[in-house]
């Protein structure tokens, strides 16, 4: 399998990349890790005329807490996140997800930004971003913009990014004293895309009342989705087993899976129910530690 012909351009700066994209027009595509785009090009599902390589742009690979935010550079690889002491100690939800994403060699190249910007509901990071209420920072023709994650995913492989926009950074509210997250997906074998996946992020107040909650799903809808109904149910309450059970039911009812090689619609809904409950418990346990 070999990609169709295209012209490669190396961008040395964001400005350079955006100018290139603007001049090359719609047939140009950015490539960061390339592990989502290049396989599609090899299958000739994607045949861009120009590839703008943004992986050489400096300064887009970092993981840090600044003010009230956790900031991760878009070009940070999954491996860098996997081995980040900060993420391991304070944001173990990333470890949950990354261990189940593709395989170690792919994670050496695949980036956080690419995983999100591809707009694929089968990718794992979109659910995490939704659960943690991230903000996407993008750089475009008109300078920098912030896009709340709930406004980011528009459709099948479609996002709020303009063709000239580059996802540069992710901002996530910093972990508080009583917050915790967890992610799990059922996969047919290790490294597979999810049959169904659930990300949960919960923040409790000092009395154990749920101050904020995020529940989002992987690969059970055309667009990465949040389970609003389950979040509303739990927000502002002390989370009990009954409520967790009800949240699982809401998630399974609200998701929109289709039957395919990974299983029937009913099976996937059932998985969403089970995993949602399990991840709620796991996230709560972490929040209470």
């Amino acid at each position: 399998m070999i990609p169709a012909n295209f012209t490669y351009h190396k961008a040395s700066s964001l400005k350079d990349a955006i100018a290139l994209a603007e001049s090359l027009g719609e047939e140009a595509k950015y490539m960061s890790g390339g592990h989502s785009l290049l396989p599609m090009m090899k299958l000739r599902f994607a045949t861009p005329e120009h590839i703008i390589d943004i992986s050489k742009i400096q300064g887009l690979s970092f993981i840090k807490e600044e003010g009230d935010l956790l900031k991760i550079g878009a070009m940070t690889t999954q491996t860098e996140m996997e081995y980040s002491d900060l993420l391991r100690s304070k944001y173990p939800i990333f470890g949950d997800a990354i261990k189940l994403t593709a395989d170690p060699s792919v994670r050496n190249v695949g980036t956080l930004g690419g995983n999100i910007a591809h707009g694929d509901a089968a990718n794992d990071q979109p659910a995490l971003m939704l659960a943690m209420r991230a903000t996407v920072i993008a750089e475009g023709v008109d300078g920098q913009k912030s896009i709340p994650i709930d406004e980011f995913f528009h459709g099948f492989y479609m996002t709020a990014l303009e063709p000239t926009d580059i996802l540069v950074e992710i901002h996530i509210p910093k972990a508080s004293k009583h917050s915790g997250g967890a992610y799990h997906k059922v996969e047919r074998k290790v490294g597979d895309y999810a049959t169904a996946g659930v990300a949960v992020y919960v923040e409790l107040d000092d009395d154990g009342v749920c101050r904020e909650i995020g529940i989002a799903l992987t690969n059970v809808s055309a667009v990465p989705m949040r389970v609003d109904r389950a979040e509303e149910l739990l927000r502002g309450k002390k989370i009990t087993d009954d409520l967790i059970g009800q949240a699982g039911v809401f998630a399974s009812e609200d998701c929109e899976p289709t039957s395919d090689l990974r299983g029937s619609e009913a099976y996937k809904r059932s998985l969403v129910d089970t995993i949602t409950k399990r991840m709620l418990n796991k996230a709560l346990e972490r929040a209470r530690q």
């Binding site: 047919r188 074998k189 290790v190």
Partner: peptide, 26 residues
């Protein structure tokens, strides 16, 4: 894990290692 799947039109549904699930060490 493995089994070649066809649809009613005779299309193979799992003709790559993404869907033809050769076991890994896990």
């Amino acid at each position: 894990y493995e089994g070649i799947e066809y649809d009613d039109e005779g299309n193979v549904l799992n003709g790559t290692f993404m869907d033809y699930l050769v076991p890994t060490a896990v």
